[in-house]
Amino acid sequence: MDEKPLLSVIMPVHAGEAWIAATLDSLADEPAGDLEVLVIDSSPTGATAAIVERFAHRLPLRLLERRDLGPWQTKTNLGVELAAADHVCILHQDDLWLPDRVAAARRWLADAPEVGLHLAPTAVIDRHGRRVGRWNCPLPADEVLGAQFLLERLLVQNFVSVPAPIFARTAWLACGGMDEKLWYTADWDIWAKLAVAAPVIYHDEITTAFRVHGSSLTVTGSRDASEFQSQMQIVLERHLPRLPASSRRWVEPAARASISVNVSLAAASGGDLKALVRAARAVLSLGPRGTRRYLRDSRLRERVTCRLRAKWTGAF
């Protein structure tokens, strides 16, 4: 690559034969001259790599076959370390880019060069690629946001969809990258760390799609209730002390209620319908004002609605 790319796209993949062709197609539909696409593949066979190699004439690809690297967090950290661009994003093997992603990235970076983390909403799609909703962030658009403002909302619920953000490579490296011990909440943790490390801005512009399906980590990882709960509590307890006491007084009850709701919803999805009663009690315990804040920051309605739509269409 003769010139430094605008953006490095890190793709941690594993046994991605079912999805990765569509994902790479979505990248190839965009202008590729400003990109570096770094695929780190830990698959046990060469089937995924063979699909990736078919795109070598359409994309500026670097393929690393690393069967020794299991977790996606480990592969992502390596990818960021190896990235040639100053700005980086992550794209999982089952997610997509939408038209004008590159144009939006170029505009975001030019308009706010001081920002270390660019956030955005994303479309939610089912396993067949049909839109079932929109994943928003409860943030004002086009304003540089301080760490306290963002953490007060982010600690209630992780509202950042992995394919949407663009971040400064130096900020990621400075805050230590992803905690590889957090197999479920490493993305939540890194957004909180980046919020403290550098200014953040939210763009109300959808340029990516997040796929919901029954074999995703989002679904399978929540089946062990105690471990699922522990993963969320680690992030909360790690970052809550960063807030002043005046904020912690209302953020902590909402965040702990949110964890309880998430665990209850996972149990209900597995057939324990009594868990829905526990979820309702957790929310109502916050009182009217706390409940309104929780519903704003948790995006509970849209999260549940997207998954229900995918199930109703038989495409979850």
Results as ranks from 00 to 15, higher is better:
residue 1 M to T: 03
residue 1 M to D: 02
residue 2 D to Q: 12
residue 5 P to V: 08
residue 9 V to G: 08
residue 10 I to F: 11
residue 11 M to N: 03
residue 13 V to S: 13
residue 15 A to N: 15
residue 23 T to Q: 13
residue 32 A to M: 03
residue 34 D to W: 15
residue 34 D to E: 13
residue 38 L to W: 04
residue 44 P to I: 10
residue 48 T to I: 14
residue 50 A to F: 05
residue 50 A to W: 03
residue 55 F to T: 06
residue 59 L to F: 09
residue 60 P to Q: 10
residue 61 L to Q: 08
residue 61 L to C: 12
residue 61 L to T: 08
residue 62 R to A: 14
residue 62 R to C: 12
residue 64 L to Q: 10
residue 72 W to G: 05
residue 74 T to D: 14
residue 74 T to R: 15
residue 74 T to V: 15
residue 75 K to M: 12
residue 82 L to H: 05
residue 83 A to E: 02
residue 90 I to N: 02
residue 90 I to E: 01
residue 90 I to C: 05
residue 100 D to T: 05
residue 104 A to C: 11
residue 108 W to R: 12
residue 112 A to F: 04
residue 113 P to T: 05
residue 113 P to I: 06
residue 120 A to Q: 10
residue 122 T to P: 10
residue 126 D to Y: 00
residue 128 H to E: 15
residue 131 R to V: 09
residue 133 G to D: 06
residue 134 R to E: 10
residue 136 N to E: 09
residue 145 L to E: 00
residue 145 L to T: 02
residue 146 G to K: 00
residue 148 Q to C: 05
residue 149 F to K: 06
residue 149 F to Q: 05
residue 151 L to E: 04
residue 152 E to H: 00
residue 154 L to C: 08
residue 158 N to L: 12
residue 159 F to W: 10
residue 160 V to L: 02
residue 168 A to F: 03
residue 168 A to R: 11
residue 174 A to W: 04
residue 177 G to T: 11
residue 183 W to A: 09
residue 185 T to M: 07
residue 187 D to K: 06
residue 190 I to W: 04
residue 191 W to A: 08
residue 193 K to W: 00
residue 197 A to C: 08
residue 200 V to N: 00
residue 201 I to W: 07
residue 204 D to V: 07
residue 207 T to Q: 14
residue 208 T to L: 14
residue 209 A to K: 11
residue 211 R to K: 14
residue 213 H to S: 10
residue 214 G to W: 00
residue 216 S to T: 15
residue 216 S to C: 15
residue 216 S to K: 14
residue 218 T to D: 06
residue 218 T to H: 12
residue 219 V to K: 13
residue 221 G to K: 14
residue 228 F to I: 02
residue 230 S to V: 05
residue 232 M to E: 01
residue 232 M to C: 06
residue 235 V to F: 09
residue 237 E to H: 09
residue 238 R to S: 02
residue 241 P to N: 01
residue 241 P to Q: 00
residue 243 L to V: 01
residue 243 L to G: 00
residue 250 W to G: 02
residue 251 V to T: 04
residue 256 R to A: 03
residue 259 I to C: 03
residue 259 I to W: 00
residue 259 I to R: 06
residue 260 S to V: 12
residue 262 N to W: 13
residue 265 L to W: 12
residue 267 A to Q: 08
residue 269 S to Y: 05
residue 270 G to C: 07
residue 270 G to A: 09
residue 271 G to M: 12
residue 273 L to T: 09
residue 273 L to M: 07
residue 274 K to A: 14
residue 277 V to D: 09
residue 278 R to N: 01
residue 279 A to P: 04
residue 284 L to Y: 00
residue 285 S to G: 14
residue 291 T to L: 09
residue 293 R to C: 02
residue 296 R to I: 03
residue 297 D to L: 03
residue 298 S to I: 05
residue 298 S to W: 11
residue 299 R to T: 06
residue 301 R to N: 02
residue 304 V to K: 04
residue 306 C to M: 13
residue 310 A to V: 04
residue 312 W to T: 04
residue 315 A to E: 07
residue 316 F to W: 15
residue 316 F to A: 08
